[in-house]
């Protein structure tokens, strides 16, 4: 029973921080709130018995992605004062509207899940891990990861490099 309250508390925190990150107009604060969302997700993943994924989530999503966001934000100019004033008038509207939308959608999804007759196995009942490691079934995914990382390296090389040259060419 206690475990259930922990799950529900974590899920509530997840939704609250996501709403805050979505309505925040200061991008740097939104990025930090997003890191908090990642942190909550980490705890949820621990609670759901996937510790390796949780560690990945913590180091990559809460760590690396936040670093990328903050460096992008610091490399770019924030909104000008007029734009910010313009946005501020909308902030109130957004801050009220989104929780309402969340509640309405939550209610709607609740109604929809009433028809679900899927019977989950008892919480915590875990089948025995297969011998030989979990990646045995997923070697093609690993190949895909290799390709996507190679593509990402080329992307960084092509899109960040010689910006000055191209500006001159144009």
């Amino acid at each position: 029973m206690d475990l259930m309250y922990v799950h529900i508390l974590l899920l509530a925190l997840l939704v609250i921080f996501s709403v805050l990150a979505a309505v925040n107009l200061r991008i740097i604060r939104a990025a930090i709130l997003l890191a908090t969302v990642s942190l909550v997700t980490t705890f949820i993943l621990f609670a759901l018995k996937t510790p390796l994924a949780a560690i990945f989530e913590l180091s990559v999503c809460a760590g690396l992605i936040t670093v990328i966001f903050i460096s992008v934000i610091s490399l770019t100019n924030p909104l000008t004062r007029e734009e910010r004033a313009d946005e501020k008038t909308k902030m109130f509207k957004r801050a009220v509207l989104l929780p309402v939308i969340v509640l309405v959608c939550g209610g709607a999804f609740y109604m929809l899940t009433k028809g679900v007759d899927f019977i989950p196995v008892a919480a915590g009942a875990v089948s025995k891990p297969e011998q030989g490691g979990m990646w045995n079934m997923r070697q093609l995914d690993l190949v895909g990861q290799v390709i996507i990382i190679l593509a990402g390296v080329f992307g960084v090389a092509a899109l960040f490099k010689d910006n000055k040259d191209d500006g001159g060419e144009k």
């Binding site: 093609l140 995914d141 895909g144 996507i148 593509a151 990402g152 080329f154």
Partner: peptide, 16 residues
């Protein structure tokens, strides 16, 4: 899921 991974490979290559 493998399909998803490879769709993302193609997508990343085409964004670049």
């Amino acid at each position: 899921f493998t399909m998803y991974v490879f769709i993302e490979v193609i997508a990343v290559a085409s964004y670049i």
